[in-house]
């Protein structure tokens, strides 16, 4: 066990980690940030996506010990400073882009990363980018709408209600 220190959601934090401790376990068990979820054991589902140094990363694929000093952002750090929902979170609520909520943190983190890279993605680009995030509830329809809406595009024009 060693102490690993990083910045999570703007705060310096440290917690114990073994060499084999994954970032997702460091966040969930070490820091009690349970918003990041584990949906699989093969790095396929995307429920665990967080941002590491500004990039979307599946937190089940990286060791915490390798991230000494990294900047990490999780779903708990996505709201506005006053606690209100950020544009992308609000779009997910407005467009009913979540049902059970289990895939949601990963979806929001992936979508935020997409919009940072590509502020006005097409429907096809959104679908393609979110290919690594599985949702069993929504049939994706409202997730795609939410992301397009968050990018400021006219949603009724692209998706039938």
């Amino acid at each position: 066990m060693t102490k690993v220190t990083m910045t999570v959601n703007g705060k310096a934090v440290s917690a114990e980690a073994e060499g084999r401790t994954l970032l997702v376990n460091y966040l969930r068990e070490g820091l009690g940030l349970t918003g990041t979820h584990v949906g699989c054991d093969t790095s396929q589902c995307g429920a665990c996506v967080v941002h590491v140094n500004g990039k979307a990363v599946k937190s089940c694929t990286v060791f915490a010990a390798d991230l000494e000093g990294a900047e990490v952002r999780t779903i708990e750090g996505m709201a506005n400073a006053d606690g209100s929902l950020s544009v992308i979170q609000q779009a997910f609520q407005d467009h009913h882009g979540l049902q059970c909520g289990f895939c949601t943190p990963g979806m929001v983190m992936s979508s935020a990363a997409l919009l940072a890279e590509n502020p006005k993605p097409s429907e096809a680009e959104v679908r393609h980018y979110l290919e690594g995030n599985i949702c069993r509830c929504t049939g994706y329809h409202n997730i795609i709408k939410a992301v397009l809406a968050a990018s400021g595009q006219d949603v009724p024009a692209v998706a039938a209600e």
Partner: peptide, 21 residues
């Protein structure tokens, strides 16, 4: 009506069984 449950899910404040410690 917009879903009230969304707020906790969208902010990482849902409480699923594995989140209980």
């Amino acid at each position: 009506s917009k879903r009230r449950e969304d707020v906790r899910f969208l902010t990482g404040k849902g409480l699923y069984t594995d989140d209980v410690s």
